[in-house]
């Protein structure tokens, strides 16, 4: 844990709430993005982060400092997001299911929303499309590692799986992402034109896709 975090935590435990405000400012963006990927709604993500910070404040004395403070916050945020998802799980009647049998709901992830990628640069759009095509468990570990900057052991603890599994999943996720990026990059190099909406068959434009059943 870095010295700044240590000092701020000590100040906060000493009764200075402003010190906690500094910690909030420092980590809110990373936690918000992590929460956004989990709950797929900006409002819910903000709620999750708010709850997570409040829980962290109440339990700050239990933080032992043997891990990074962000990792500790991340675990709390992850649990808060899972709780929210459980609370918001829709109750669907069997009759309603019968009518839609064989049709799975679209993945509401930010990465697969049509139009969302159009605002981004072409490279980002291709990358986002490829990430969106990863399986949920591969995407989860890849983003936890590369964007959230967690270590294997932290990811393993958050997800409740062995470290070996995380290492294996990440390895497969990287190879899968490489395979997904290669065709679009080759086509981009050949045509040198940004793909349009009609070229969606190869995955260049993020499309709603069927959610995998885990």
């Amino acid at each position: 844990m870095n010295d700044d975090d240590r000092r701020l935590i000590a100040d906060c435990l000493g009764g200075k709430r402003d010190a906690f405000g500094e910690l909030v400012s420092r980590y809110q963006t990373r936690l918000y993005n992590a929460a956004l990927r989990l709950v797929h709604s900006p409002d819910d993500a903000a709620d999750v982060v708010q709850e997570a910070f409040l829980s962290a404040y109440q339990a700050l004395h239990t933080f032992k400092g043997d891990a990074e403070f962000f990792t500790w916050l991340y675990r709390i945020t992850f649990n808060a997001a899972i709780s929210l998802k459980r609370k918001k799980r829709p109750v669907i009647s069997l009759d309603a299911n019968a009518q839609d049998s064989g049709f799975e709901p679209d993945d509401p992830s930010e990465y697969v929303k049509p139009g969302a990628g159009l605002e981004r640069s072409e490279d980002e759009r291709r990358l986002n499309a490829a990430i969106a095509k990863l399986s949920a468990e591969h995407r989860e570990v890849l983003l936890m590692k590369d964007i959230d900057g967690l270590k294997y052991e932290d990811i393993a603890e958050v997800l409740g799986v062995p470290i070996g599994t995380i290492r294996s999943r990440l390895h497969r996720a990287r190879l899968e992402l490489r395979d997904l990026l290669v065709p679009s990059e080759e086509r981009g190099a050949l045509t040198d034109d940004p793909p349009t909406g009609e070229q969606s068959g190869s995955g260049a434009i993020p499309q709603p896709r069927r959610a995998r059943r885990d």
Binding site: Q28, R30, Y32, N33, F53, L127, L177
Partner: peptide
Amino acid sequence: DRNRVRALPQQQPPTSLAARVMARV
């Protein structure tokens, strides 16, 4: 590939988020 993923832009949280958290605190 890892560097490209890392360079993806982050969404900015609502500007009031920190204030809301501190109000709760």
